[in-house]
Each structure stands twice: as structure tokens, then as C-alpha cells.
Design a protein around this nucleic acid. Structure first.
Length: 188
DNA sequence: TGAGTGATTGACT
DNA sequence: GTCAATCACTCAT
């Protein structure tokens, strides 16, 4: 299954909400793992909290075509995963913060060293570990291929809009979206 | 060339 | 609630 690039070429705030209920899949030699996106945050170039606030080598990919992976290394030990969104020339992306594990749960358990499904993907650096997403996935095409986003069928849920998590700049902007009542979102 | 910073997590008090 | 781990990136010398 593939997802058209045009799906991703919409503004960050629209996409942060639209991606909820979609499925993130990663197929590796160890097996396939996937999860339903239940929490996401929007980042834009006019936003001091965004890596694209300054256009640099690292953030350049956010200004290119939508539907590619932007991964970054955080706090010296974590990888976080973003979906590049919006029109070419706009530095926009959506940070995927939490998944509801669907496929390959035993594989995720092994990678995370945990049993509780609620803790496997309930944070931006947790889901990358569970799905084995690494810096080598920087720039991966998410419309097709081993690491991809598939459109979800069930979108029958209520969405909560709230301030983003863990940032110091522009912390008041309510650009975090998550599925109401979902037990798989990150806390705080 | 080097210091400060950070879209985090997990262990410990 | 507090704090260490640990490094790529950014900006200032």
C-alpha cells in the first residue's frame, strides 16, 4: 500500500491532526512492526521551537517535498521521528509522539526490553526504539518502502488539542494533538 | 575551535 | 520531584 505525496503536502497544523489514526509501518530483516499514530505535534518555520526556525543543513529537508522522514538525535542518546509536511519552501514537519502498537508487538517488546504494550511506544524516543527507526532513516520516503505511513480507516475518535511537550520556546502554542482517552499517549 | 543547549527517558530520593 | 547520560547542532570566539 502506498500513500500519495499530496496527502502530506498540507499545512503542519492540518497534518498533525490528520495523521492521528494513520499507521506507521517499519519493515526490517527482523520482521515488521507497526502502530497507530495517537499523538503528534506540529512544527513550522515561523515557530521559535522548531528546528526549521533557522534554515540549516539539518533542517533543510523540512523545506523540501512532503512525505519524507526527518529524524534527529536528541540528548545524546535518543532518536525522534518526524514527517515532513506542507508545500515545498515551507519548513514544516509533524513530530510523532506516540503509537498504539498493532503489528510486531513481540518484536517491540524485545527491542524495548519491556512487556507492557502501553509503554512500548508512549513517547517520541520510545516509538523509534520499538520500530528500530534510526538516523539512517533520515530522508526515507514515507509514501512507499520499508518505512512508511499508511492512511488509517478508523477515524472515529475525538481529538484533543493541547500545548506541546518538553519545549522552552513558544511553549504556549496549542500545537499538540492526541486521541481523547487513549491509553497509549505520552504523559505529562 | 569550543561552549552552551536540547521536540527525552529512566533511575533514584 | 530531581538528575544524569551523552552528542549533534548552533552560535560565538
Amino acid at each position: 500500500m502506498t500513500t500519495p505525496r499530496s496527502y502530506f503536502a498540507r499545512p503542519a497544523l492540518v497534518m498533525a491532526r490528520a495523521l492521528l489514526g494513520d499507521i506507521l509501518v517499519h519493515e526490517t530483516p527482523e520482521g515488521s512492526a507497526s502502530g497507530r499514530i495517537v499523538e503528534a505535534e506540529a512544527y513550522r518555520e515561523d515557530d521559535p521551537a522548531s528546528h526549521s526556525y533557522r534554515r540549516t543543513a539539518r533542517s533543510e529537508i523540512m523545506f523540501g517535498p512532503a512525505g519524507y522522514a526527518y529524524t534527529y538525535f536528541s540528548y545524546g542518546l535518543h532518536v525522534c521521528f518526524n514527517v515532513v509536511v506542507g508545500e515545498v519552501g515551507h519548513g514544516a514537519a509533524v513530530l510523532i509522539r506516540a503509537l498504539e502498537p498493532l503489528e510486531g508487538i513481540d518484536l517491540m517488546r524485545r527491542r524495548r526490553g519491556l512487556d507492557d504494550p502501553r509503554k512500548l511506544c508512549s513517547g517520541p524516543a520510545k516509538l523509534t526504539e520499538a520500530l528500530a527507526i534510526e538516523m539512517t532513516d533520515y530522508g526515507a520516503d514515507l509514501t512507499r518502502g520499508p518505512l512508511r505511513v499508511e492512511r488509517g480507516r478508523d477515524k472515529d475518535f475525538r481529538v484533543v488539542r493541547a500545548p506541546r511537550v518538553g519545549i522552552t520556546k513558544a511553549a504556549a502554542k496549542p500545537w499538540r494533538f492526541y486521541i481523547a482517552g487513549c491509553p497509549f499517549i505520552s504523559k505529562r
